[in-house]
Write a protein that binds this DNA or RNA. Structure first.
Length: 271
DNA sequence: CGCCAGGCCTGCACGC
DNA sequence: TGCGTGCAGGCCTGGC
């Protein structure tokens, strides 16, 4: 599901509908997400005005003044805008009802998502405190990547997907960024030299930027909050292309398993 | 039927 | 004894 580009697309789609809007109430139809939705949530958000919608990694942060509504879309979560009175469908677990008559609705069939409340600085919340630098932050660069990969014997792809190393990169964009950097996903992280770390950091940013520009990738469940499907999947170079010819050199794309996840790469372009 | 799917936390075993 | 590390398992539904 949604990785950084999809969450960022969602965030941008929500902003015009929710910023400076007052929350009338919240409706929790199913408390059993990856962690229980707090029983007190409706009481906490009712009457608050949403000052901003932020993002940290794949977490969405609704700034409600003294506290923050924290949402994570998990694997199959989708957040979008419906009119007040729109009947909920199966897996519509959570509504944020605004005074304006707009409803922010969470649908998440697999229920790996999260709806939480954070008091004070949301970045100090246990689940957010340890997240690595944002890819578009100055703190994320080749130097950082070089530093955090020292002594890491794990494959570079697994390290990229570790949220403590860099925020927001999941399976799709790890695969895609490694292709664009010409790095073999099985490469031991510690064997990446400074030059390759620089290149990889650049390609991560580039890949994510392009995906955000395309409104993210629409696979299975994901559609942007404006209801418009993203189109970046048409630009996938390797993801889900096992056996198909590399767009650059024609060599069949390889599909392997790493850490119980699917990896795709071009054995010729990625060394 | 079994396997796979965009995430990520926890717990365990291991080596230093 | 403690740490970093790296796996496996778990949470769920739906599609093939």
């Amino acid at each position: 599901m949604p990785e950084l580009p999809e969450v960022e697309t969602t965030r941008r789609g929500l902003v015009p509908f929710v910023v400076n809007q007052r929350i009338a109430t919240a409706i929790v139809r199913n408390h059993s997400l990856r962690l229980p939705v707090p029983r007190s949530l409706p009481r906490l958000v009712a009457g608050a005005t949403i000052a901003a919608v932020g993002r940290r990694g794949k977490y969405l942060l609704f700034d409600c003044g003294p506290g923050t509504l924290i949402l994570h879309l998990g694997m199959s979560g989708r957040l979008w805008i419906v009119d007040h009175g729109t009947p909920p469908e199966p897996h519509d677990h959570f509504d944020l009802v605004l005074d304006s008559g707009t409803v922010v609705r969470l649908r998440d069939p697999r229920r790996f998502g999260l709806v939480l409340w954070g008091n004070g600085d949301p970045l100090r919340h246990t689940l957010l405190a340890g997240i690595g630098p944002e890819p578009f932050d100055a703190a994320f660069n080749g130097d950082w990547l070089y530093r955090v990969t020292r002594n890491r014997t794990a494959a570079i792809k697994l390290v990229l997907m570790d949220g403590h190393v860099v925020a927001g990169i999941g399976n799709i964009y790890a695969n895609e960024a490694l292709f664009h950097a010409g790095v073999n996903p099985r490469q031991a992280a510690q064997r990446m030299g400074p030059g390759r770390c620089d290149l990889l950091a650049d390609k991560i940013r580039e890949t994510l930027e392009l995906a955000i520009g395309a409104g993210g990738s629409s696979l299975r469940d994901y559609v942007g909050s404006d209801g418009v499907a993203g189109s970046f999947q048409s630009q996938f170079m390797v993801y889900d292309r096992a056996g198909e010819p590399c767009h650059r050199c024609g060599t069949p794309i390889k599909g392997i398993r790493q850490g119980q996840r699917s990896t795709f790469y071009c054995p010729r372009c990625q060394r």
